[in-house]
């Protein structure tokens, strides 16, 4: 698992949201390539190969990072800042997922170089549609850097 190619890195503290996201991705056959991490701290260790992920080959960058903003300890903004300011990781596309378009951090996200910004819809159908489109775009349509 440690050196397996990770296609989608989902960083989401809400287990329920994560479960629904993974279910939606699975529905559209993206699920086997998802790695879910529950907080920003762990995510940073994973991305930069530190802490318990010290042995991970970090040149195996995920193709896209789905990032929740509101997380305890290290929040999404912090993760985004670190990813986008490091030469090794700044080309990884980051899609921010949030519950609200009211989020005051939207502007900060764009300043930090977020690639996309998605408000999680309430309705489950809408939610799965959004996830599906997201997966198709970033995994299938977008020509990512290898």
């Amino acid at each position: 698992m440690k050196n397996r190619q990770v296609e989608i890195l989902l960083i989401e503290d809400s287990a329920h949201d994560a479960e629904m996201t993974i279910r939606a991705l699975r529905k559209h056959n993206f699920a086997n390539k998802v790695t879910h991490l529950g907080d920003g701290d762990e995510a940073l260790d994973f991305i930069f190969g530190t802490g318990k992920y010290a042995e991970r080959n970090i040149s195996n960058n995920p193709i896209v990072i789905l990032l929740d903003l509101k997380m305890p300890k290290v929040d999404g903004i912090e993760v985004l800042r670190k990813v986008k300011s490091d030469q090794r990781t700044k080309t990884i596309p980051v899609v921010v997922l949030t519950s609200s378009k009211e989020d005051p951090d939207v502007k900060t996200c764009y300043e930090l170089g977020v690639n996309s910004y998605i408000v999680k819809p309430v309705g489950f159908d809408n939610f799965t549609d959004a996830i599906k489109e997201l997966g198709s775009y970033w995994l299938l349509l977008n020509t990512h850097t290898k």
């Binding site: 949201d17 629904m20 279910r23 509101k70 609200s100 009211e102 989020d103 999680k120 309430v122």
Partner: peptide
């Protein structure tokens, strides 16, 4: 008020999403 509005929209929507989503599951 603004931050209240934000937390209303964020914190109220998240459980609703779960209610609807899991009912759907």
């Amino acid at each position: 008020l603004e931050s209240f509005t934000y937390s209303v929209s964020h914190d109220l929507r998240a459980p609703l999403r779960a209610i609807d989503g899991f009912a759907n599951i």
